[in-house]
Lab assay of single mutants.
Amino acid sequence: KTVHVDGVEYRFNNPEEADKFVKRLVKEKNGNVEVRGDTYHVE
């Protein structure tokens, strides 16, 4: 899984860790998540 945040790319081998990371980011930023294939885009 890959997570894109503000143009920075984070790669996770463990999908659960990627999910936790995304949830935390969305809370912090009050942002939205767009999923494209295996990539999460957080804005």
Rank of each mutant, 00 (worst) to 15 (best):
V33N: 05
V8W: 04
N32H: 13
F21C: 05
K23Y: 02
K20N: 14
V5Q: 00
N30K: 08
L25C: 05
N30M: 10
E9F: 11
E28H: 08
F21Y: 02
N13S: 13
Y10L: 02
V22P: 00
V33E: 06
G37K: 05
R24C: 15
N13G: 05
V35F: 10
Y40P: 05
K27H: 08
K27I: 10
V35T: 06
V26G: 03
G7Y: 02
K1G: 03
Y10A: 00
T2P: 02
K29Q: 10
F12I: 02
K29G: 12
A18S: 01
N14P: 00
E43F: 15
E28V: 06
N30T: 05
N30E: 07
V26F: 12
G31A: 14
E16H: 04
E43V: 14
V42Q: 08
N14R: 02
K20H: 10
Y40Q: 08
E34P: 04
V26Y: 12
H4M: 14
V5S: 01
V42I: 12
R11A: 04
R11P: 00
N32V: 13
D6I: 01
T39G: 11
E34D: 07
H41A: 09
N14I: 03
K20E: 15
K23G: 06
V22D: 02
E9D: 03
N13Y: 03
G7K: 00
V5D: 01
E16R: 04
E28F: 11
K23M: 12
G31N: 08
D38Y: 05
K29E: 06
K1R: 12
V35A: 07
E16C: 14
D38R: 04
N32M: 13
R11I: 08
F21K: 00
F12N: 01
E16Y: 06
V5F: 11
E28D: 09
K20W: 11
G31W: 14
G31L: 11
V3E: 00
Y10P: 00
A18C: 13
N14D: 12
E43G: 11
K29N: 12
N13V: 07
G37P: 07
N13F: 06
D19S: 05
E16G: 04
H41R: 06
E43S: 14
V8P: 00
F12L: 00
N14T: 14
R11T: 07
K1M: 14
K1S: 12
V8G: 00
L25H: 03
V35K: 09
K1P: 10
P15M: 09
A18W: 07
R24H: 08
Y10G: 00
L25P: 00
K20L: 13
E34C: 15
L25G: 02
F12A: 02
R11E: 02
E9G: 01
V42T: 08
G37M: 09
T2N: 04
K27A: 14
K27Q: 13
T39L: 08
Y10K: 00
E17C: 14
V3I: 11
E9C: 15
L25S: 03
K27G: 09
K23T: 08
K27W: 10
E43R: 12
E16V: 04
G37I: 12
R11Q: 04
E43M: 14
D6Y: 06
D19V: 11
V42Y: 07
G37R: 06
D38S: 05
R36H: 09
Y40A: 07
E9Y: 12
N30G: 14
V33R: 03
E34T: 14
K29T: 12
P15I: 11
H4R: 12
V35L: 10
Y10Q: 00
F21A: 01
K1L: 14
A18H: 02
P15G: 07
V22Y: 09
F12D: 00
D38Q: 06
R11M: 04
N30V: 06
E17N: 01
H4T: 13
R36I: 13
T2D: 00
V8D: 01
V33I: 08
T39A: 10
K27F: 11
N30C: 15
D6G: 06
V5C: 13
V22C: 14
K23F: 03
N30Q: 09
H4K: 13
E9H: 03
K23R: 11
V22A: 05
H4L: 14
V26Q: 10
A18Y: 11
G7I: 00
E17W: 02
V35W: 11
K27C: 15
T39C: 14
K20S: 13
E28Q: 09
D38L: 06
K1Q: 07
Y40C: 07
D19N: 05
K23A: 14
G37N: 07
R11W: 11
F12C: 09
E34N: 10
R24Q: 11
D6T: 01
V33H: 03
T2E: 02
D6E: 03
K27M: 12
K1Y: 15
P15L: 09
G37C: 14
R24W: 14
N30Y: 11
D38I: 05
T39Y: 08
N13A: 12
T2A: 04
R11D: 01
H41I: 14
E9N: 03
D38T: 05
G7E: 01
G37T: 09
V26K: 07
E43N: 13
F12K: 01
K27R: 12
N14G: 03
F21T: 00
K20M: 14
V35S: 06
K29M: 14
E43D: 10
R24T: 09
N32R: 14
R36T: 07
R36S: 10
L25Y: 08
V35Q: 06
V8T: 05
N32D: 05
E9V: 14
V8E: 02
R24Y: 12
T2Q: 03
Y10M: 02
K29A: 09
K20T: 11
H4N: 12
D6A: 04
T2L: 07
T39K: 06
E34I: 15
G31V: 15
H4A: 05
N13I: 07
H41S: 09
H41C: 15
E43C: 15
K23W: 04
V8I: 09
R11K: 09
T2R: 05
T2F: 09
H4G: 02
D19L: 15
E17K: 00
F21Q: 01
V35C: 14
V33F: 10
G7L: 02
D38M: 05
D38E: 08
V35Y: 11
N32C: 15
V22F: 12
R24E: 10
N13C: 15
D19Q: 10
F21W: 03
V26W: 12
G37V: 13
D19F: 13
V33T: 04
F12W: 01
N14K: 02
N30W: 11
Y40E: 06
E17S: 02
T39N: 08
E28N: 08
E28K: 07
E43L: 14
L25I: 10
N32Q: 11
A18L: 08
F12P: 00
L25T: 03
K27S: 11
D6P: 01
V22N: 04
V42D: 08
F21L: 02
H4Y: 15
Y10D: 00
R11F: 12
G31E: 08
T39W: 07
G37Y: 12
E34R: 10
N30D: 08
A18M: 06
G7A: 02
G7W: 00
V35D: 03
K27N: 08
E9A: 09
K29W: 15
F12M: 00
E43H: 13
P15N: 05
H4E: 08
E34F: 14
K20F: 09
V5W: 11
K23I: 07
V42C: 07
K27L: 13
E17Y: 00
V22H: 04
K1V: 15
V35I: 13
E17H: 01
E16K: 04
E9I: 14
R11H: 12
V33D: 04
E16D: 10
E16N: 03
R11V: 08
V3S: 01
D19E: 13
N14Y: 02
Y10H: 01
E34W: 14
G31Y: 15
H41G: 06
L25Q: 03
T2H: 04
Y40D: 06
T39R: 07
E16L: 04
H41W: 15
Y40H: 05
H4C: 15
R11L: 04
R11S: 06
R36E: 08
R24P: 01
K29Y: 15
G37E: 08
N32F: 13
V35P: 04
L25E: 03
V8A: 02
L25K: 04
F12G: 02
V42G: 08
G31C: 15
D6N: 14
V33A: 05
V35H: 04
T2C: 15
T2G: 01
V3H: 01
V22T: 05
K29F: 15
N13R: 09
N13K: 10
E17Q: 03
R36L: 10
K1W: 15
L25R: 02
V5T: 02
P15A: 13
K27Y: 11
E9W: 13
G31T: 10
E43Q: 12
V5L: 05
E17M: 02
K29D: 06
F21S: 00
K23V: 07
E17R: 00
K29R: 13
V33C: 15
T39F: 06
T2M: 05
Y40S: 07
H41V: 12
N30F: 10
F21E: 01
P15H: 08
L25D: 01
